[in-house]
């Protein structure tokens, strides 16, 4: 059973933002996809994480439909948004906050978060924190919104058995090709 199954999924608001996409990602596998615009990439990542719902087509995440079972979907997914925060939150407070939202034991979450931060030593602090936060509840699918090549590699190392999905914009693609070749998903 695929962990992520997108069939002709689109997203539109006034105009089409994500054109029809077909992706099948099995458990433990990885997929990187380059979109035509940064907005398209960020929206595709949110579709894959169940944060927003597709306009047409279908998306199943771990056999759950995000339109009908959003809570079950979000338990399976770890989502790392593009780094946009204005201020760096205190790591302990941030992990406690995420532990409360994901119904994870607070002490265990802080301990795991700290271990992950040590592991992401070379990453910029903000990115390391966001990635550690996304992995805190041991997701089955890790979704990255336009990650840097460093964050992508760190996520691959740390995700373990979890499947990994990353969406890139056109500018990210140039950076990625220069640093690490991408596995292109079929659109």
């Amino acid at each position: 059973m695929p962990i992520l199954d997108m069939r002709s999924a689109t997203f539109a608001r006034d105009q089409i933002i994500v054109p029809p996409v077909n992706i099948t990602l099995d458990a433990g596998k990885q997929s990187d996809i380059v979109c035509e615009t940064d907005l398209s990439a960020s929206v595709l990542a949110r579709l894959a994480a169940g944060v927003i719902k597709c306009t047409t087509g279908t998306i199943f995440i771990g056999n759950f439909d995000p339109k009908i079972q959003p809570v079950q979907v979000k338990r399976l997914v770890g989502f790392m948004p593009r780094d946009q925060a204005r201020a760096l939150p205190d790591p302990d407070a941030y992990f406690s906050y995420r532990a409360a939202l994901w119904e994870v034991d607070k002490r265990q979450a802080i301990a795991r978060g700290k271990r992950l931060l040590r592991r992401f030593d070379g990453l910029p602090a903000q990115e390391a924190l966001l990635l550690a936060g996304a992995l805190l509840h041991r997701p089955h699918l890790l979704v990255l919104d336009r990650p840097t090549s460093l964050a992508r590699s760190a996520a691959e190392d740390a995700s373990g058995e979890a499947a990994l999905f990353a969406a890139y914009g056109p500018a990210d693609r140039a950076v990625q090709i220069a640093t690490a070749p991408l596995e292109m998903a079929v659109r």
């Binding site: 338990r75 997914v77 989502f79 948004p81 946009q84 941030y94 906050y97």
Partner: peptide
């Protein structure tokens, strides 16, 4: 920055 992850949290 805290609230930015609420959308992805498993909450009704």
């Amino acid at each position: 920055p805290f609230a930015a992850v609420e959308e992805a949290a498993p909450l009704f």
